[in-house]
């Protein structure tokens, strides 16, 4: 297959460019080779540059919480695993690991996803936002986080990061939801303390905080 000799191995390249010829990564000949070959390349666009057949990249750059993070990710690795166990972002929780409980919810390009069911390699060039990326650098909490504090939204709070990320994502599409609408928006998240009523109250408060902070 002729195309296979032409790899795009430069992450951080604008989507339109990087997708021009886009058969990415195959690990066949070993990680060491692929990582080494990567390290000698700059992160500038390298379209058309030839590399060895069948050599894929595991060392990739992810945009997480506004930072470029280098990470060695296996092809079968999920984003939740990478975030927690490679990047130390343990605010993203792994509950069911089957796209059911929502505790691993993160935003990818502002849309909520179950990070347990997204392959890390598929988010190259996209913006990942986790619970750690919500607060300001000065420590000021995100208005939704503040709403959770204000209303003491959660009990054990294992599900909290997921609920907050789902809410932040939902509010981008509907900033002024009714209680019913917000419940629909966060319905992909489970709480086993089942404190849904108080959670919803706190997230409604968060939505209100957010609207207020956007005005001011």
């Amino acid at each position: 297959m002729a195309d296979k000799t032409d790899f795009n191995t430069s992450e951080g390249v604008p989507k339109a460019v990087s997708r021009r010829n886009f058969i990415k990564g195959v690990i066949t000949s070993g990680v060491a080779v692929s990582s080494a070959s990567y390290l000698f390349r700059a992160s500038t666009p390298l379209n058309g540059q030839q590399s060895a057949v069948g050599v894929g990249e595991r060392l990739i750059t992810l945009n997480v919480n506004g930072q470029q993070r280098r990470v060695d990710a296996m092809k079968q690795e999920t984003l939740a695993s990478t975030l927690r166990y490679k990047l130390g972002l343990t605010g993203t929780k792994l509950g069911c690991d089957r796209a059911e409980c929502g505790s691993c919810t993160v935003l990818i390009d502002d849309i909520p996803y179950y990070a347990c069911s997204v392959l890390t390699h598929t988010v190259r060039g996209r913006k990942v936002l986790t619970i750690e990326g919500l607060a300001n650098r000065d420590g000021t909490l995100h208005p939704v986080q503040q709403g959770v504090i204000d209303e003491q939204g959660f009990q054990c709070a294992f599900c909290m990061p997921g609920f907050i990320m789902a809410t932040v994502g939902f509010l981008k599409t509907k900033p002024n939801p009714t209680r019913q609408e917000l419940a629909q928006g966060i319905s992909g998240n489970l709480c086993r303390c089942q404190d849904y009523d108080k959670i919803l109250t706190s997230l409604m408060r968060g939505a209100e905080n957010l609207r207020r902070s956007n005005r001011g």
Binding site: Q152, Q155, C193, Q194, D195, Y196, D197, K198
Partner: peptide, 8 residues
């Protein structure tokens, strides 16, 4: 939270 959570 306890009363409604455990009711649920």
């Amino acid at each position: 939270g306890q009363v409604l959570g455990r009711s649920t």
